[in-house]
Design a binder for these strands. Structure first.
Lengths: 137, 137
DNA sequence: GTATAAAAGACAAAAACGGTCCTGAAGGTA
DNA sequence: TACCTTCAGGACCGTTTTTGTCTTTTATAC
């Protein structure tokens, strides 16, 4: 249960490669894919998501590629994971805005527990930057 | 990401029904399914898992059915969820026993983070019993 | 213009999810 | 013994998600 998919795994590997490069250096997706050992076309999709979320900048044409959009110390693991996997939601009932009980419009009896789980996971992932991860190697 | 499946949702609903019944009362799967609004054959599979994990007792033949195997205050939400969804493992690397780094037999740089996530989730779910949930519900 | 590189979308195999159905086994009951 | 009840176990099946690939388009540099 609660398992990260390959996409999330690849996303982390890809962004960590960028973080390991000199700040501001533009990297090709082919280069990142090779270094991170991820299928190139799949990684391209992942980096599209990153670009949309403002985690990386993308440049087209000759000399194009990707750079981090911010200092790696300002990018959290949570952002990276959520960019490709969507928000961290242990149960649908957290989306339905409190009307999750089957007999009415109140929160179900597990609602608060899922909120606690969510908060716990978010706190851990928000507490780690890709700079910290990159330093560990 | 990290979403509970229907199976987990149904599992909780089913066990909560049992917890709401007089202690020791034997309930038919058909009765539980109707009360919990879950497809009966599907719920039957779920209760098979419960029985294997020692959460419920099952009895066959006339007068058979299911009872809780323990007092509801001694059954945690974690047990219920894990019985049907498997162990809480945010990343495969937690299974591989430390050899998750691509360049060798060491833990990867995110390993400790996943351990923290896992520990956090487990702590929350272990802190809630189905008795507590049943009282609220 | 032309080469380069990312963006976007269509497509597809494989796995997981969300069930159903059927047979068998175990336990009562007459 | 025969029969009925109830759970156990496995086969099956449609749908969705995952894990990609491939092709076309768009933006940019030279």
């Amino acid at each position: 249960m609660m398992e990260l998919t390959r996409k999330g795994e690849y996303a982390i590997r890809g962004i960590l490669y960028l973080a390991s490069q000199p700040l501001g250096k533009v990297s090709l997706i082919s280069e990142i894919a090779e270094a991170a050992e991820v299928p190139q076309t799949f990684l391209a999709k992942i980096f599209q998501s990153f670009a949309k979320m403002g985690i990386v900048n993308s440049y087209r044409g000759t000399g194009g590629g990707f750079t981090l959009a911010r200092h790696p110390g300002k990018i959290t693991l949570r952002e990276v994971v959520e960019a490709v996997e969507g928000p961290i939601i242990p149960n649908r009932c957290l989306i339905e805005g409190g009307g999750c009980d089957r007999r009415g419009n109140l929160p179900c009896c597990v609602h608060e527990v899922w909120k606690d789980v969510q908060a716990g996971v978010v706190r851990v992932l928000d507490g780690v930057t890709i700079e910290q991860l990159a330093q560990k190697g």
